[in-house]
């Protein structure tokens, strides 16, 4: 059986908000090390990989592997019934067909319980190769989100170029073109505003901005984001969690 407790329901709410626009139904695999999810978005452009280590929970118990087949929008609907600072418990018996969610406000002596029906989901898996990326950029998650939102007014696609001078985002559409360039920098007072670039060779890739904007909904989970790119390959975009990560593998647009 699974029993996992979080001190604040907002932790799970934010994670679900970061993935719900891309995923419909997917399996969450639970074992003694934690919860994991790997699922393609409906159009197979983005793969979402979520890891929530058991250390990230205030209490965690999972004696044997449990697969939770969930509709992510149904989970989001139920989570809306929890206050952000409620204590949240996830519970599922072995071979049960439901996930029990308990929301507890210890001050008000309120306990709400919701049973979410589980589904058998035949999920497609992709083998992700271990990759040494040509460029790695760590930057503010909020700044990335803002930059992409600004450029989405111009075009459906953004080109990202990374070289030793910095990282440049550019877009071109009917009304004109625009770009934003960030130089590597260290901000001692606000470390999350630093831009760190590790590079073995310059990279330039283009991506669909609609999908990218869905990915950056994870910005509420972490102050920084790690972008990793290699020419002609999907980018890896990672938001670190206190014990785990939300990672996206994002297929670029390729010249015909």
């Amino acid at each position: 059986m699974l029993e996992a407790k979080l001190d604040a329901a907002s932790q799970l709410k934010k994670i679900v908000e970061a993935i719900r626009d891309m995923l419909g139904e997917c399996n969450i695999e639970c074992n003694e090390t934690g919860l994991a999810l790997q699922s393609l978005d409906k159009s197979h452009i983005v793969l979402v990989s979520l890891l929530l280590g058991s250390d990230g929970f205030s209490e965690y118990r999972c004696d044997r592997g449990v697969t939770l087949g969930l509709n992510i929008n149904s989970l989001a609907t139920v989570l809306r019934c929890a206050n952000n600072d409620d204590i949240l418990t996830l519970r599922s018996e072995d071979r049960a067909n439901e996930l029990i969610l308990t929301f507890e406000d210890s001050k008000a002596d309120r306990i709400s319980e919701f049973n979410l029906r589980l589904m058998d989901i035949d999920q497609e898996y992709l083998a992700i190769p271990e990759t040494e990326y040509a460029a790695t950029v760590v930057m503010s998650a909020a700044v990335l989100q803002r930059t992409l939102r600004d450029l989405s007014a111009l075009s459906e696609a953004v080109t990202i170029e990374i070289d030793k001078e910095g990282i440049r985002f550019s877009a071109e559409g009917d009304l004109g073109k625009g770009s934003t360039h960030f130089k590597p920098c260290v901000d001692m007072e606000n470390a999350e505003n630093s831009i760190n670039i590790t590079l073995s060779e310059p990279v330039s890739l283009s991506f669909n901005l609609q999908y990218f904007s869905n990915i950056t909904k994870a910005s509420s989970l972490s102050s920084t984001v790690t972008l990793q790119m290699t020419a002609g390959m999907p980018a890896q975009i990672e938001y670190k969690l206190p014990s785990g990560h939300v990672r996206y593998y994002f297929a670029p647009k390729i010249e015909d």
Partner: peptide, 14 residues
């Protein structure tokens, strides 16, 4: 012009 390919064009499926 550039086109959008699915992830399976880059990663093998299983």
């Amino acid at each position: 012009d550039s086109s959008q390919k699915p992830l399976s064009a880059f990663f093998g499926g299983s």
